[in-house]
């Protein structure tokens, strides 16, 4: 159970890091003043992943087309390893995301990073989603029936 919860938190953090604006991430990161020594295990390197859909939305999988992704893996001095992968070709962001992923193996550091970096960005992303949702909702058609006037 605990492992599952840990994975869920880590996945959510990775999702925020993948979607966030690189400049904003750097800004929040710089405020923390952390600069851990690390060794690059892989990358940052850009490549392709093949995206997939499902026939009719729910059926058998099919290959839709590729997307660029960039990934990086790092190891900190204490041995913790971090990974990152995000759509696009931003190597610096992938490396920083991998460092953050590695740091978050330590629960105390994770609490700090989640509070100071991940949570604010998540809030901003959620707010942008909510604005989009409300803008779409404003284009919803409200049907009304014409009064026939027979009785």
């Amino acid at each position: 159970m605990e492992a599952e919860a840990h994975i869920a938190v880590r996945k959510n953090r990775m999702s925020v890091l993948a979607r966030c604006n690189a400049g904003r991430l750097q800004e929040l990161w710089d405020r923390l003043g952390l600069d851990p020594a690390h060794k690059t295990l892989r990358g940052p390197e850009s490549g392709l992943v093949m995206l997939r859909g499902r026939v009719g939305g729910t059926g058998e999988a099919f290959n839709l087309g590729e997307a660029t992704v960039t990934r990086a893996s790092v190891r900190l001095e204490d041995g913790s390893v971090g990974h990152a992968m995000a759509l696009g070709r931003d190597g610096a962001k992938a490396r920083l995301s991998a460092i953050i992923d590695a740091l978050c193996q330590n629960l105390e550091t994770a609490a700090l990073i989640d509070a100071e970096v991940v949570a604010p960005m998540q809030e901003e992303l959620d707010r942008a989603d909510e604005t989009r949702r409300q803008q779409t909702a404003a284009t919803r058609v409200d049907f009304f029936t014409m009064v026939r006037g027979e009785d």
């Binding site: 390197e45 490549g47 392709l48 992943v49 093949m50 995206l51 997939r52 859909g53 499902r54 999988a61 290959n63 839709l64 590729e66 997307a67 992704v69 990934r71 992968m85």
Partner: peptide, 9 residues
Amino acid sequence: PRFGYAEPV
């Protein structure tokens, strides 16, 4: 390079 396949969306 091709890194792999994504999960179906």
